[in-house]
Simulated assay, not measured.
Amino acid sequence: MRKTQVSECPVRKPSVVPYVVSWSTELAGFEGMLDVKWDSLGPKLGYKDERSSDRVGRDQVLWGRMIYRPGVGRPEYDSMHPGRQYYAMRWMKCQVCGESVCRNEDGWLFLDWRKENDPLTWPERSVTAMPPLCEVHARVAIAECPHLRNTEFLALRVRTPRIWGYSGAPYTLTSDGWSVGEHDALCPVGDPNLRAVLASRLYRELCNVTVVGRGVAG
């Protein structure tokens, strides 16, 4: 099988704004929109004007609202739009162009690098919030993505990128209503704590991985 050569692309000023990137005019919803909802299991985080589209997955996780204005303002390269990140990760669309990603016999194409909580089997069973890429925009990302500069990374083909869980703002119910935590919570599918998380990222676990390239950008 022909290897994907990824280490020869020079880093340059971004020529394209990735589909998943948020823009400066895309503001998140206000905390005043949140409410206490009740079901057979007790209280859970919700919106006062909640719609069925506000919840995702089998856990019916509350998804963070953000205005949708791609292309308006300036791109925030260090932030992903919750709605577009979910769409790309859930439906396996390219994180750069938002279009369908072709897979071959080895699976879908991902870029990955070592993270603090990676398993000893990395890159096998790595958990990531970064959606897959098409082959054209994988090369663009390698050449231009500021997060890859001076970072050792792998190009992977993944046969089984299974949905692993979510991350977002964890809330605690107090006598005065919901109080937000100081950090993002990372919760797997089925975690009861998801009832009080305002999610903003969908994660997949990369299983049945084949390394097709490696490099250092920058």
Rank of each mutant, 00 (worst) to 15 (best):
L148C: 05
N150L: 10
A138S: 09
S179A: 15
P170M: 08
T151H: 09
D184H: 14
A141R: 05
L194K: 05
R139N: 04
T151D: 03
M130F: 09
E182H: 13
G190C: 10
Y171R: 14
T160M: 09
G177V: 10
A169K: 06
A138M: 11
P131H: 03
R162I: 14
L154K: 11
V180F: 01
H137V: 10
F153S: 01
A141W: 07
T174E: 10
W178G: 12
L154N: 04
P146T: 04
L186M: 10
C187Q: 02
P132S: 12
V127P: 03
P132G: 08
M130V: 14
L154G: 06
G168K: 03
G190F: 02
E135Y: 07
V189P: 01
A185H: 02
D184R: 13
L194M: 12
T160Q: 09
T172M: 08
A141P: 02
L148D: 00
R159L: 15
V189Y: 00
G190Y: 00
T151G: 07
G165T: 02
G165I: 02
L148A: 02
L156K: 01
L133H: 07
E152H: 11
G168E: 03
G177Q: 05
P170Y: 00
C134H: 01
C187S: 07
P170T: 12
P146S: 04
S167C: 07
V180I: 15
F153H: 06
A169S: 14
G177K: 05
E152F: 12
L156Y: 03
R162L: 13
F153I: 05
E144M: 09
P131M: 09
V140L: 13
W164S: 07
P161T: 08
T160I: 10
P132D: 04
M130E: 11
E144K: 08
E152M: 07
Y166F: 11
P131K: 02
P146D: 01
Y171E: 13
A143S: 15
H147Q: 09
V140E: 01
A138H: 02
A141N: 03
V180A: 15
R162Y: 08
P170V: 12
E135K: 11
P192G: 11
S175H: 12
S179R: 14
T128Y: 03
P192M: 11
P132V: 09
W164R: 08
W178S: 12
P170A: 12
L154Q: 08
P132C: 14
Y166C: 01
G168M: 06
V189S: 05
L156V: 05
S179P: 06
F153A: 01
I163H: 12
P192E: 13
C187P: 00
A141K: 04
A155R: 02
G168W: 00
H137M: 08
V140R: 03
Y171G: 14
G168V: 09
E144G: 10
A129E: 04
T172S: 10
H137R: 03
E135W: 03
R159E: 13
A143H: 04
G165N: 01
L148I: 05
D176S: 15
H147E: 06
H147W: 05
T128I: 06
C145Y: 03
T151C: 13
V136L: 10
E135P: 05
V180Q: 12
Y166T: 00
P188C: 08
L194H: 02
R162E: 14
